[in-house]
Design a protein around this nucleic acid. Sequence first.
DNA 1: CCAAAAGTGTTCACCTTACACCCATGC
DNA 2: GCATGGGTGTAAGGTGAACACTTTTGG
Lengths: 211, 211
Amino acid sequence: MIESTLVSVDVLALRFDPEARAVLLGIAPRALEPFAGELALPGVLLGKGERLRDAARRAVTGKLGVPEGAISASGQLTTFDEPSRDPRGPTLSIALWATVDATKLTDDGPAWTPLADVPPLAFDHDRIVRDCRPILAGHLWRDTAFTAGLLGREFTTAHALDVTESLTGDRPYPANLGRTMERVPGLERTTQHAAALPKGGRPPSVWRWTS
Amino acid sequence: MIESTLVSVDVLALRFDPEARAVLLGIAPRALEPFAGELALPGVLLGKGERLRDAARRAVTGKLGVPEGAISASGQLTTFDEPSRDPRGPTLSIALWATVDATKLTDDGPAWTPLADVPPLAFDHDRIVRDCRPILAGHLWRDTAFTAGLLGREFTTAHALDVTESLTGDRPYPANLGRTMERVPGLERTTQHAAALPKGGRPPSVWRWTS
DNA sequence: CCAAAAGTGTTCACCTTACACCCATGC
DNA sequence: GCATGGGTGTAAGGTGAACACTTTTGG
């Protein structure tokens, strides 16, 4: 019989920080060898019979110290299978995304780094982040769970602009993004307007999911 | 330490049959329990340190009896993680596609069934096929390895029409498909024309990859 | 009033879909 | 000639990007 490969689940834990006006990626220094002390994506070995989502939750709560209830959604990205990606031996890595609700975070949190500017990471995690960014960008506005997980039940056009810029790398015109959002099923522009930014400017519309 | 899950690789082996004018899916009766005798996708357990592509080759050659050299390309689809999908115990299934060059097939081959009309399969393989069909359709014309693997180095507009219909479920207008193909990088319309079909009709253009 | 930032309206380019019509073959 | 089926041309509708101009805020 063939000996089986180990499977790890590595998570791109994302949260939107309205202060920083950017999507942040959760990373944590590794506690153990290899790469002890170096920054890495939160990851765990998949347990027997464990679902990928559950392993992702376990990674995010365990390695990032995020409370269970703060994880708002998760989903699959791709699988990385280079046999040499882990010096301990061949390990498959299944990448998932998970969105974290910032309002439910405890303060002693881990390192959150702008997705657009991630420091060098352990293993092949740089590559994972690089390969997965376009996939994440493709989920925006198309995958409701992902979008709502990042932006929350209610958000402003300004937030949407910041999230889009973080994921795709460039900032759309507010006018065009508004029209894009009007075509997103389950999303509607409310009649409310948020407070303007400290620097002034017209207060943005508030958007809400209809579910 | 956590006991690891088993990983299997299940393959959607595809080939285009110009006679049948359809994309065919390779399936084979299972030799062993569970589901012995029932039809299933070719699949193997992933060996330690084995790459997904290599496991896919192994599944296609071993379970379908397709010669090694007939596999023209392969790639990743998605992962299925229901713990109950295999009665022997929790097994992860990573689905891959592989394209098979029909000209290199030995005749004693396995069952090839039209992708548009697959009989009931063992395990959750019906679901795998159902979930993966749209992903395959999305690869057409966008993923060169996939498209060239299916259609070969040289093919006619008529073949392209048949393949598109098999994958997406409806047949495009020849005119529009021709214009789509002209925009595919690395693909060009030659000045040649193939022989017409037995029933007559205008002979279609021949297309060729420029690489 | 000025700067900042979102919203409205409009235009242009492009892509997709659809179809009428033309052409090349087998019978 | 007739049926078959791909190719050419062309027009309508939708999508996206770009931008001038307006509106609403802070200072």
